[in-house]
Design a protein around this nucleic acid. Structure first.
Length: 401
DNA sequence: AAGCAGAGGTAAGGTCTC
DNA sequence: CCAAGAGACCTTACCTCT
């Protein structure tokens, strides 16, 4: 989907269509300030405030990032994952809107349902992206797939008013790259024989799976384009990147990918994490940290319960003020979705990590998930005098460690 | 009895993606 | 002087069991 989060907002506020708009912030505080009804009672309406006119910009969105920017905003160099402060410098007149996840999810479901009605073999790739295997869809082979791609595009637009970009190719790897060729609202067909002319000139970073680190390392080895990557000996790549990654790099540089479009999958972990408004110290800000920690555990537990899962690997993640990161986890005998159990085990994990440096982020994760329905005895954690302290500890003031 | 290989689990850290 | 949140998957190390 093209500029998905921003496009969803433009549906509601078409008067913003040609303006630079950035979606981000995302903190309760920001949302409350941005969305206020004029008299304080009616439905909440956004104020269209240029980012530069934000009161206390640094306090409000200082640590937030841009989720999506409209194409008008992208003209100014503003883009996804950019810090809000930097965006404010680049494009002070950009209008800021908070992410409305309910609205985004609604349109996500709608466009995906539209697709599966036409082509049922669809793989979710997040809220705004899918893979479709339309090999066997009637008409899927006409004009190399262009006819069906046009039909899907039009059906999505009719159902949602939103545009998307579609890449058609013999496999997922090439289709993903093709989808970037003609944005927004474009279709691009890439055939196997186009490899040399259309894929090899691209930078290696265009390969889905080669990120900043691998891109840097390849650059140090003098490899910039996919063609240059294809020219390397597979054994040599395996020597530098490991057996599995090296072999994979060689395959993808030659446009080879036989991974299937997977229509069903089970989650393997669920987590909640939050960046604090200011860096917190484990000792000095213990009460505040403890409250946030309990809250994260509570929210993960709710997520698990709502979705019907239990898990037995409980972990924490923290980010220090210098952005170094640490994770710890512990596996328990019986999978759980109980907030108190998660809190207790996550607390044990926290004890195992150095806490003399300020923290900027804390996260709680539950992994090794199984469906509750396939593990019926779990979750009904016994709360007996023998297994639980008799004194009921206040989760807000209970010691962190 | 000691040594070793392979499987499988756990843990820590890292990378990548949307 | 900036740099979210959620999730998947990989590598490496270590341990236990067989």
């Amino acid at each position: 989907m093209d500029a998905f989060f921003a496009s969803v907002e433009l549906l509601r506020y078409p008067q913003l269509k040609c303006l630079p708009v950035v979606i981000g912030g995302g903190r309760r505080k920001v949302d409350d300030w941005l969305l206020q009804s004029p008299d304080g009672t009616g439905p909440r309406e956004p104020r269209f405030i240029p980012v530069a006119d934000f009161p206390l910009l640094k306090d409000y969105v200082g640590r937030g990032v841009i989720t999506t920017a409209t194409y008008a905003a992208r003209q100014f160099g503003v883009g996804s994952a950019m810090g809000m402060m930097k965006a404010a410098r680049l494009c002070p007149q950009a209008i800021v809107l908070p992410v409305d996840f309910d609205e985004v999810r609604k349109y996500s479901r709608l466009f995906k349902r539209t697709i599966t009605e036409i082509a049922p073999v669809m793989q979710d790739r997040g809220v705004d992206e899918v893979y479709i295997d339309f090999t066997d869809v009637p008409g899927g082979q006409r004009e190399g797939g262009r006819v069906l791609a046009r039909l899907i595009q039009k059906s999505i637009f009719d159902a949602t008013g939103l545009t998307c970009s579609i890449g058609v190719a013999p496999n997922r790897l090439l289709a993903k790259m093709a989808s970037e060729f003609n944005k927004p609202n474009g279709i691009s067909i890439v055939y196997a024989e186009d490899l040399q002319a259309r894929i090899w000139p691209l930078h290696v970073r265009k390969i889905n799976g080669i990120g900043p680190k691998a891109g840097e390392k390849l650059a140090r080895l003098g490899i910039e384009t996919i063609g240059q990557l294809a020219a390397q000996d597979a054994q040599w790549l395996m020597g530098h990147f490991g057996k599995s990654t090296g072999a994979w790099m060689h395959r993808v540089a030659w446009g080879q990918d036989d991974s299937p479009v997977v229509t069903e999958s089970e989650p393997v972990s669920m987590s909640r994490e939050t960046t604090f408004e200011r860096d917190l110290h484990a000792v000095r800000d213990k009460a505040e940290l403890s409250r946030i920690f309990s809250d994260l555990c509570q929210r993960v537990a709710e997520d698990l319960q709502r979705k019907g899962y239990v898990g037995k690997t409980i972990g924490i993640k923290l980010r220090y003020d210098d952005f170094r990161m640490a994770t710890r986890d512990q596996t328990i005998a019986e999978p759980t979705h109980d907030a108190a159990t998660i809190r207790r085990v996550a607390g044990l994990c926290l004890k195992r990590v150095p806490l003399d440096q300020r923290l900027r982020l804390l996260g709680v994760r539950v992994g090794a998930l199984v469906r509750l329905s396939e593990h019926p005895q779990a979750g009904s954690e016994p709360v007996s005098a023998s297994s639980r302290p008799a004194r009921k500890a206040d989760p807000h003031t209970a010691p962190l460690f």
